[in-house]
Amino acid sequence: MSIQSLKTYLPENTSGYLKNWFSNYYIHIKITRGRSSKLGDYRKLPDNSHEITINSTLAPPLFFFVLTHELAHLIAFEKYGRRISPHGNEWKITFGRMLLESLEVYDDDLKPIIVKFSKSPKANFMASPALVRYFHVETQEDNLQFIERLQKGDLFIFRNEKYLLEGLIKKNYLCKNLDTGRQYSFKPLARVEKCS
């Protein structure tokens, strides 16, 4: 897939960065259906070309962010060698530099989040609550919300099971499964359906 054919998925003014980052490599880019397990991935193919897959369902700024993440893998491996850790210091330095280099692509309210994130990039998008909050758009159709928006005593459904929010333990929420009586810890950005 060419940079030109990616334009429908990307914010404006990204082609210069991509041409610069892609220039020395032969890369297969596959646009996939939405996957809940990952937003994108990178791997080197047996013919020494590279493959990046990215979910088609991502908003353009998030699509560019994920593409930058995956390209950082390629560039770090090519620069430092294949023995580096996939999300180690070499990747963090590469990804952080690329994010700052392309900062103008992002909206003004997202730029401070990107700058802060670039100082120590996380391997998993979900490990950055500020990014998750920024890119998550709740819709009427899914009725899901972050558990951190609920109050103590609220009932909610998670994976077809009903829970009671009992309170906060450090940064997580202690919740009781009403069918089994067992208690579980939920991260603040778990998406749940509040019971009315």
Rank of each mutant, 00 (worst) to 15 (best):
Asn172Gln: 15
Gln145Ser: 12
Asn48Arg: 13
Leu99Gln: 07
Ser15Ala: 06
Lys7Ala: 04
Glu193Gly: 03
Asp179Gly: 04
Tyr25Ser: 12
Leu67Ala: 00
Leu155Arg: 15
Ala190Thr: 14
Ser36Asp: 14
Tyr80Ala: 03
Lys152Trp: 04
Thr68Arg: 06
Phe64Val: 01
Ser118Phe: 00
Leu178Ser: 05
Phe117Ala: 02
Leu74Trp: 01
Ser128Asp: 02
Lys170Val: 11
Phe186Val: 09
Gly34Cys: 10
Phe158His: 14
Tyr184Gly: 06
Glu141Pro: 03
Gly88Arg: 00
Phe135Cys: 04
Leu6Glu: 06
Phe22Gln: 03
Arg149Ser: 15
Ile157Val: 15
Ser37Tyr: 09
Glu51Leu: 12
Pro121Asn: 04
Asn124Glu: 14
His136Asp: 10
Asp142Tyr: 10
Ser2His: 07
His50Tyr: 11
Lys30Arg: 08
Lys194Glu: 00
Gln183Leu: 11
Gln140Arg: 15
Phe186Glu: 12
Phe63Tyr: 03
His69Lys: 08
Lys92Tyr: 09
Lys119Asp: 14
Ser120Tyr: 12
Cys195Tyr: 14
Met1Ser: 11
Leu164Asp: 08
Trp91Asn: 01
Met98Trp: 02
Asp109Pro: 10
Gly153Met: 05
Ser128Leu: 04
Val132Phe: 02
Val105Phe: 12
Pro121Gly: 04
Thr53Glu: 12
Asp109Ile: 10
Leu178Ala: 05
Ala130Ile: 05
Lys79Ser: 03
Ala59Phe: 00
Ser185Tyr: 09
Phe63Ala: 00
Ile113Lys: 06
Lys122Gly: 01
Gln4Lys: 14
Ser120Lys: 15
Gly16Glu: 15
Ile31Val: 12
Lys152His: 03
Lys122Met: 12
Lys170Cys: 06
Ile27Arg: 05
